[in-house]
Design a protein around this nucleic acid. Structure first.
Length: 787
RNA sequence: UGCCCAGUAGCUCAAUCGGCAGAGCGUCCGGCUCUGGACCGGGAGGCUGGUGGUUCGAAUCCACCCUGGGCAACCA
């Protein structure tokens, strides 16, 4: 099944698709879109990886008709100590099973070792890398802490020649593990820990599963990964949020290793939120722990979120794909409810799984008005009427059969409409049955039910039109097939087992596996061995691929049916929702209190000189405390502000623009010195808007041009025709045409949706290229609309 | 007490670079039904983390604060 046949493009768009869209439009990479899935072969894949696979390979499919797309499968095998070919194979199988094809694009980071080495030599020659001979402990100490800057290594200033010689010897195997490392020479006092001279290569005399003993120096992730991407001409390198900090090194490596002309189309890294599923654990080490301690059956235990576990459980790959698309790709951390996953499963299985009957907890029933050896073979549809299929199978009805123990109650509550003494129910596909006798053993446990069927109700409909409330599934005692059912529940009892005080295994759910000896209708023998079926009223199942045999059938429960009777498993009852709402409200109030308490005086962080300036701004210029502090706190900005005042003496207007617009434009690390315009142009702009010659909106447009190309504000105003329109008659006609063009909105506005005024304002402003005097326009609109 | 990221419906996410706060799931009610499933129709649910500011207009821009997460491995 292809992946491009489900969700429509708009439902799967996300910020990464937006970026790709922009790059395609700008031609950053020509018409190429190349992604990659880069697992380290040191463990098995889980559903979290599936999200990444679906994202990366999904892009390949989704843009196939508009771009030259490709998705590489790359094994990031740069650490010989943990990696093995066993994992390579399992990863390849998992990706294939999920429905994706990397074609000829199977790569290994270890194949690039020579190139990593060459790039390192280049860095050394440029003076951008050095061999450090501190030991591990010392390196850590020299690095400093998050609060204190690091100190440079005494080996930091070795000559290029010395570094080169040392590095060659490292490669040649002349040193012990840990004797030296190669480091990037960046900035030991950087506020970003990652930039304090990150390690590039370390010595490891270890056997690599692919390279054997050819190498004894191995590259670090932060160095190797960008180069891998560059070597493969990746365009969009997608990884999870925790690599956000690493992006700085990623960019540094690109900029220092690549040639100038390669930079415009170099790979870029983008981070998205990893998948967090509730009631399970996802980390490799925790999964390994569960297996090594025999707390689960193995990597493919159906309770595990591993790909192999899900596969064995019977989860169809298509359901995983649609789930991964549903959960969304954003930059905000989140935990997805398990119910969401189950919904995706049912949604996929519902139209694909033929219905059969199975009893998992049998209670014997005898029909007293039915012959001992009489068998009625009923032709029963495999599909409910709302599914457009109609294969049938023969179902044998006999004197004794089994029903689910749960489906009988001696003292039924009002809302229980299954079987009870004296009550008539429908036996699915067969007859109406009335319970007349209840047989118990010495303990009082019900062992058998006796009763009669109405022979006129064959096919489970009555000629007189009566219809029992309950319908029960059942299986013939003599013709049914005994089998084992394995029911799975969440592995842990809490949504966040790995984020608590106690060890995560303390929260294991003792009932996560529930084995039942049940009985199955005989027709299942005619189904394909890997056929997923629905056991009516219970859930979706399939035969366990490892343990089930034709003589001893074993079925795994893939997912139970949604059950609206009885307790809510997810605890999402009305009360729970109400409780959560209240909790959220309380949380907000607490936050409000704290945020108010935490407020500081904006002038608090000023030094003495800045303080003087602040006082002047506030007292002589009458600026607000906040604006005065913000401007005074940035010397260059304050100089700019003062210079602007020379050209237009309106301190408060200038301050507003300086703080609210100028500062916003400087967010990307630029300073006022980098701007393509000076204080005079800035002052002119502020004057134009302050004297109502242009509108705020027009000023924004001018400011954008200024930021981009510089120039004279007045010339820009003329060029773009931005002079403010105050003429009431001219505006009135614009207002009229806007209202005429949007009769529906007008009706809704008059119907009470007053917030549409913003919509109309927007239309008027658009129609006038932002030049309409907003106050006049608003008044006119209001007049027309409220008449 | 550094740097980075994120806070929108119970949950997952939207909101065309300042102009109508929406969708799916969940929930509740109704319909249909030989599955307490599926399906169909409808409803409820929001001070867009907070306070100020800029603006005709702020979820979006500015400042400060609050909350959560990440970063100080010779792992990736």
């Amino acid at each position: 099944m292809s992946t491009s046949d489900s969700p429509t493009p708009d439902t799967r768009s996300n910020f990464i698709y937006d970026i790709i869209e922009e790059d395609l439009e700008a031609g950053t990479y020509g018409d190429r879109v190349v992604t990659r899935f880069p697992p380290e072969p040191n463990g098995y894949l889980h559903i979290g990886h599936a999200k990444s696979i679906v994202l990366n390979f999904g892009i390949k499919h989704d843009y196939a008709d508009r771009a030259d797309t490709q998705c590489h499968l790359r094994f990031d095998d740069t650490n010989p100590e943990t990696e093995s070919p066993e994992y390579v194979d399992s990863i390849k199988e998992a990706v294939r099973w999920l429905g994706y094809d990397w074609e000829e694009h199977e790569y290994y980071a270890s194949d690039y070792f020579e190139q990593f080495y060459e790039y390192a030599v280049k860095l050394i020659k440029q003076g951008d890398a050095y061999v450090d001979s501190l030991d591990e402990e010392e390196i850590r100490e020299y690095r400093g802490t998050v609060e204190e800057p690091g100190t440079p290594s005494p080996y930091r200033d070795r000559s290029v020649e010395e570094n080169l010689a040392l590095f060659r010897k490292m490669k040649a195997g002349e040193f012990e593990d840990g004797a030296h490392v190669l480091r990037a020479k960046i900035d030991m006092s950087s506020p970003h820990m990652i930039m304090r001279d990150p390690l590039l290569f370390r010595i490891k005399h270890a056997h690599h599963y692919r390279q054997g003993d050819d190498w004894c120096i191995y590259p670090m992730y932060d160095y190797a990964h960008p180069l891998e991407d560059a070597i493969e001409d990746i365009t969009h390198s997608l990884c999870t949020l925790e690599f956000d900090n690493n992006r700085r090194v990623y960019d540094w490596v690109m900029e220092h290793c690549l040639d100038e002309d390669e930079l415009p189309s170099r790979p870029r890294q983008y981070e998205f939120n990893r998948l967090n599923l509730g009631y399970t654990v996802m980390s490799k080490t925790k999964l390994r722990h569960l297996i090594e301690e025999d707390l689960v059956g193995g990597w493919d235990d159906p309770r595990l979120p591993t790909i192999s576990g899900l596969r064995r459980r019977g989860v169809p790959p298509r359901a995983i794909r649609s789930f991964c698309r549903d959960v969304g790709v954003t930059r905000s951390q989140s935990r997805v409810q398990i119910g969401h996953f189950e919904h995706a499963l049912r949604d996929d299985l519902n139209p694909k799984a033929p219905r059969v009957m199975a009893v998992l907890d049998p209670l014997k029933v005898t029909v007293t008005n039915w012959g001992e050896d009489e068998i009625d073979w009923i032709d029963a549809n495999h599909w409910p009427r709302d599914i457009d299929k109609d294969e049938t199978r023969p179902v044998p009805f006999t004197r004794t059969f089994y029903i689910e123990r749960d489906d009988f109650r001696e003292d039924p509550p009002d809302d229980f409409f299954r079987l009870a003494p004296g009550r008539e129910v429908r036996l699915r596909h067969a007859y109406f049955f009335t319970c007349e006798d209840v047989i118990r053993d010495d303990d009082g446990t019900v062992t058998e039910l006796r009763g009669t069927i109405d022979p006129d109700t064959r096919g489970a409909t009555a000629p007189d039109g009566r219809s029992p409330e309950g319908t029960l599934h059942w299986v013939s005692a003599s013709q049914g097939v005994p089998f084992e059912a394995r029911l799975y529940d969440r592995l842990f009892e809490v949504p966040d087992p790995d984020a608590r005080d106690k060890h995560f295994t303390e929260f294991l759910n003792p009932d996560s596996l529930n084995v039942r000896q049940g009985i199955l209708e005989p027709a299942v023998r005619d189904l394909a061995a890997d056929q997923r079926v629905q056991f009516e009223r219970q859930g979706y199942f399939w035969p366990d691929p490892e343990d089930s045999t034709p003589d001893a059938l074993i079925y795994n429960q893939i997912v139970p049916l949604r059950d609206t009777w009885g307790e809510e498993e997810d605890g999402l009852t009305q009360e729970e929702l109400e409780r959560r709402r209240r909790e959220k409200e309380k949380r907000k109030q607490r936050q409000r209190k704290r945020s108010l308490e935490g407020k500081t005086d904006p002038a608090e962080y000023l030094d003495d000189d800045q303080r003087d300036r602040f006082d002047y701004f506030r007292d002589a210029l009458d600026l607000s405390r906040n604006d005065a502090a913000v401007i005074a706190g940035d010397n260059a900005l304050a100089d700019f502000f003062d210079a602007a005042r020379e050209h237009y003496d309106a301190p408060s207007a200038l301050a507003n623009w300086t703080v609210n617009e100028l500062l916003g434009a400087l967010k990307d690390g630029r300073t006022v010195e980098d701007l393509p315009f000076g204080p005079d142009a800035f002052a002119t702009l502020v004057r134009l808007v302050d004297t109502d010659e242009i509108t705020t909106r027009g000023a924004d447009a001018v400011f954008d041009v200024l930021l981009e190309d510089g120039g004279a504000p007045e010339a820009i105003v003329d060029a773009h025709d931005l002079r403010q329109v105050d003429d009431t008659d001219a505006l009135r006609s614009t207002v009229h045409s806007v209202l005429d063009d949007h009769p529906d909105e007008v009706a809704r506005y008059r119907d009470g949706k007053k917030s549409l005024i913003g919509f109309f304002m927007g239309q008027v402003m658009d129609a006038t290229n932002g030049a309409a005097n907003p106050e006049v326009a608003r008044e006119l609109l209001q007049d027309e609309l409220d008449e």
